[in-house]
């Protein structure tokens, strides 16, 4: 945070009735407040800390959906749209993502180039709850998909394409093994971790595209309302169930693929899967969802 640039040289003249030390005090506070206002983009203080953000989001959805426990939002719109929920539960009886999980298991157990396998990196595979996290040494957010490719390169193998079918299958198998783990992203405290978190938070709240929507426009302001016949879900449940089987895709796909689609729907050019933008957004959203259980893969429209 820089104190240098801001104009704090208020005149001390023409201020009868206030003692100089009190005035100085007042000015100091006024300056700090002004600086926080001006340099909001650099100052973590001006954002509110992550704990306050998480409380604010939970409080908002509690108020919006008073009859629904916050944890229920893990099911997205099916938490509050009863008709849609029944159809969804019927689909989940014979889940179309089962094949993807089986194929993921096969890939998971296939030897990598140097003879090692994914289990050398991920043990029994039930690790989804450990991601994303902020790696202080690399100074970036590590997602499960990034870790999968890191594992491959550690064992002399080629990275998988982030928009391809294979990585979604490996991730689907890992997600399946990790069901019911409770999301518990460590609170970002270092300046670098806070910067990544705040970047995600800014992305979430910034209006983009020709249609001028932020993530929060639909999922905070309009959460629970309908666009045409579709209800808008609460963001608390946005990260719980990936990779998801989307009926529109007829396949399992990643959270970042969904981010890209959201961006395109408001006519904003999407970012690449696993770009810093989307990883930071995932980091922010997952921190906000702390306390919710993982339930992927799941079916979504």
């Amino acid at each position: 945070m820089s104190f240098k640039k801001e104009p704090c040289n208020y005149s001390l003249t023409n201020s009868p009735g206030i003692s100089i030390p009190a005035l100085m005090n007042y000015l100091a506070i006024a300056c700090v407040v002004t600086i926080l206002g001006y340099t909001g983009l650099q100052s973590p203080l001006a954002y509110g800390d992550p704990t306050a953000d998480r409380q604010a989001m939970r409080a908002l959805y509690q108020k919006r959906f008073p009859d629904i426990p916050v944890e229920a939002h893990k099911d997205g719109v099916y938490a509050f749209d009863q008709d849609a929920r029944e159809q969804w539960l019927e689909l989940e009886d014979f889940p179309p993502y089962e094949i993807a999980i089986d194929e993921g298991e096969e890939l998971f157990n296939t030897a990598l180039a140097d003879g090692a396998s994914y289990s050398d990196c991920f043990g029994d595979g039930a690790v989804k709850g450990q991601y994303p996290y902020f790696d202080e040494n690399r100074s970036e957010v590590i997602t499960l998909e990034l870790a999968i490719n890191d594992c491959r390169s550690q064992h002399d193998d080629q990275p998988l394409a982030y928009n391809g079918p294979e990585i979604a299958r490996v991730a689907a198998y890992i997600a399946f093994l990790s069901r019911d783990q409770i999301i518990a992203v460590a609170e970002p405290t270092s300046p670098a971790a806070l910067a990544a978190y705040n970047d995600g938070k800014r992305f979430y709240s910034s209006r983009k595209g020709q249609l001028n929507f932020a993530c929060s426009s639909c999922h905070v302001q309009l959460a629970g309302k309908r666009l045409r016949s579709e209800r808008l879900s609460a963001s608390l449940g946005h990260v719980t169930h990936w990779p998801a089987y989307r009926l529109k895709w007829q396949d399992v796909g990643s959270l970042h693929r969904r981010f890209a689609r959201c961006n395109q729907q408001v006519r904003a050019e999407p970012f690449a899967q696993q770009s810093p933008e989307y990883r930071n957004l995932e980091y922010f959203l997952t921190y906000i969802a702390n306390g919710l259980p993982l339930n992927g893969p799941a079916i979504r429209k």
Partner: peptide
């Protein structure tokens, strides 16, 4: 949006 987004984020509950 450089500044506008900040106003848009939900405020924490009154106590905080």
């Amino acid at each position: 949006e450089q500044n506008a987004w900040l106003e848009r984020f939900p405020k924490p509950p009154a106590s905080t």
